[in-house]
Simulated scan of single mutants.
Amino acid sequence: MKVLSQFSAKAAMDGDGVNIRRVADFVTTKFDPFLMIDEIKSDDEQDFIGGFPAHPHRGMETFTYIRKGGFEHRDQMGNVKAIRAGDVQWMSTGFGVVHSEMPLADAVDGLHGFQIWVNMPAKDKLRPATYQDTAGSASVEVTNDTGASLKALAGDWGFKDQPLISATIQGLAGEAAIADLSLAPNAEATLDLSQHEFVALYLYQGDLSKGEDSQWSYHQGEFLVLDSQSVIKFKADERGAGMLLFAGKPIREKIVQMGPFVMNTQAEIQQAIRDYQEGRFGYIA
């Protein structure tokens, strides 16, 4: 695989004292159509017990994927859902969403999950909000002969010479697609993602070989922007590896971001703040 850019996740805190690792770019938009990847991974509940009390969003999409533990989601649209291990959730916030995400009381074995922000094009930033999740339904997954498994979380993928289509989550902004690729010890995987303009990965477990020289140079917590037109080959060492894969079509619009709002101008940001303060986003019942 050919790596175009390499970024390292940084320790951060969000919500009510939740410790996370974050990769974000709201300035150069090198991740376009993606904006941010937050990872929560801890067996100590003090790192996440405060959760994310009610807060707003406008002009972007949130995509949540849980690998261990879980959250209860509530929003002003009336959705109340437990999002557990293996589940994904997608909100296209549009004009505005108010939601909360609080740890489930029965999730006692720690928490590992991700929230990914996807930009929305200007023409869609004020459309009505929509919500989807996969709670209670299994994601589409295929495993090759070496022990590499690809789980389609959103959008369409190809693996082991067969198409994988997410059964529930389709229609993300920027034609975004997201998958979870797990490599058993010494497993290998080859992907042709040349149909996508943007391709990247976030390595959440293990190391990856840089190439034929077998030097292990890409490590846990790194976000790699890849050349989508080159065949992408992965090889894990004896510990195995896990990564999220990202693909999409850049939106190529200037953005202005302030906290949970992602718009195209400063005036639109100020309008979002006024609309939220005046209750136009609605309230969680």
Rank of each mutant, 00 (worst) to 15 (best):
A85Q: 09
G86D: 08
G86A: 08
V88E: 01
Q89R: 05
W90L: 12
G94S: 05
G96Q: 01
V97L: 14
H99A: 04
S100E: 15
E101K: 10
M102D: 02
L104W: 10
A105S: 15
A105W: 07
D106A: 13
A107Y: 07
G110L: 07
G110E: 03
L111P: 00
F114S: 07
Q115K: 09
Q115D: 10
I116D: 11
M120A: 11
M120S: 12
M120T: 13
P121Y: 03
P121I: 05
K123S: 15
L126Y: 10
R127Q: 14
A129M: 14
T130F: 11
D133F: 07
T134M: 05
S137K: 13
S139N: 15
S139P: 10
S139Q: 14
E141Y: 00
E141L: 12
V142P: 06
T143A: 09
T143E: 14
N144M: 07
N144V: 09
T146V: 08
G147E: 07
A148D: 05
A148I: 02
L150A: 09
A152H: 06
L153P: 00
D156Y: 06
W157T: 03
K160H: 14
D161G: 09
D161C: 03
P163Y: 02
I165G: 05
I165V: 15
S166F: 00
A167Q: 13
Q170R: 15
Q170H: 12
G171E: 03
L172K: 02
A173H: 07
A173V: 01
A173Y: 00
G174N: 03
D180T: 09
D180P: 11
L181A: 02
S182C: 06
L183C: 13
L183R: 02
L183K: 07
P185A: 11
P185D: 12
N186I: 00
A187F: 06
T190C: 09
T190I: 11
T190K: 11
L191W: 06
L191C: 08
L191P: 00
L191M: 14
L193G: 00
S194P: 03
S194C: 04
Q195N: 12
F198K: 00
V199F: 01
V199R: 04
L201I: 11
L201F: 03
L201V: 10
L201A: 08
Y202S: 08
Y204F: 14
Q205D: 12
D207Q: 14
L208Y: 06
S209P: 00
K210Q: 13
K210F: 11
K210N: 14
G211A: 13
G211W: 10
E212T: 12
S214A: 14
S214Q: 15
W216G: 04
W216A: 06
S217R: 12
H219M: 08
G221I: 08
L224V: 04
L226M: 13
Q229C: 01
S230Y: 09
S230W: 06
V231G: 04
